[in-house]
Design a binder for these strands. Structure first.
Lengths: 162, 162
DNA sequence: GTAGGGCTACTCGGATAACGGGTGTCCGAGTCCTTGCGG
DNA sequence: CCGCAAGGACTCGGACACCCGTTATCCGAGTAGCCCTAC
């Protein structure tokens, strides 16, 4: 049960894209530079976000990534699922159907209760992630962030986009 | 975000141990046989349960594993954490402190808001798992299980333990 | 001077290697029971 | 007949290989803007 680190990268990148002026885009190179991340590997994750429809991509000079919809319409869950996949964390192998006490599979009406419990937990996790939007995150971030960093970031964006 | 399959094995094994008569134990060999699992690899997970103090182990002939405390005092979370480790699923790499907009680390008072959101989700997951006890699980299991299987399982236990 | 075409630079996207942790297996450590021997 | 000790069988526990998925990297596909040329 370990989330891959690309998730953190993806969320941060979305957060940065959310602060961009309307119509502007940021290429992988710049995003990687801003967070000091390996460009090529970051590209892979951005690709996932693009395929999931969370960001738009445009090629060629001046191209890059931009949010596909307003930040308050993007849930944290969307980003996590885009990068990590939508499959549930627990996959029941139905081992109760094996071994000496097993009976014909037509006898098993319901999912095994263990599976159900694990899936409930999984749902709670997703529910929690779904309740947070990218917009919320950005607002919180502004409050938490040292003001000096906020200014530096703003200046950087200004320079890159403007 | 994928749980290793040993978790399912561990839970099922605990469930089986819970149905044993007081004082009885079941060795790895028998547990593996009951669920048709690779004995040696299962042993590894049982070892984790043992180290976590969820089950008692006794060596020698007639030895094996038994629950260390009543089934209603064992939470699903305990089993999951014993096998999967206690570390949170999300580990913040603090990438906000890197790149051109970073400022001195003494400026960062609070955890980054992304980390907090992920950790909240993680807590919700654990909360859900903590609300289920092994005893609850066993009761549910009895209801769900085909009656024929229940009888077969009882007979098997009778034979092995008795 | 202007319009059109080609070219270059820049960007994304998928295909391809390298590493690490989960997966699977083995052998040694420890314990209990059995059995044989001596009193 | 009873008690003790040695041996064997059984079990757990940790140490050792293997393999798939995450991590990391590369190169081709596509696009926009620019420049050069021709009219």
């Amino acid at each position: 049960m370990k989330l891959n680190e690309g998730i953190e990268w993806g969320i941060h990148c979305c957060g940065l894209l959310a602060t961009l002026p309307e119509g502007a885009a940021l290429p992988t190179t710049k995003l990687a530079e801003f967070f000091d991340l390996p460009k090529d590997y970051l590209a892979k994750h951005l690709q996932h976000l693009s395929r999931a429809g969370l960001v738009n991509s445009s090629r060629g000079p001046g191209g890059g990534y931009s949010l596909a919809r307003p930040a308050d319409k993007i849930r944290l869950l969307d980003i996590v699922e885009a990068i990590d996949g939508k499959g549930p964390s627990f996959r029941c192998a139905e081992i109760r159907r094996r071994g000496p006490s097993a009976v014909g599979s037509e006898c098993y009406q319901k999912d095994c209760c263990i599976s159900r419990a694990m899936l409930r937990a999984d749902a709670a996790w997703r529910q929690s992630l779904a309740s947070v939007t990218l917009a919320t995150l950005c607002d919180e971030s502004k409050e938490d962030m040292p003001s000096e960093q906020f200014q530096k970031a703003q200046a950087w964006i200004e320079q890159e986009v403007g």
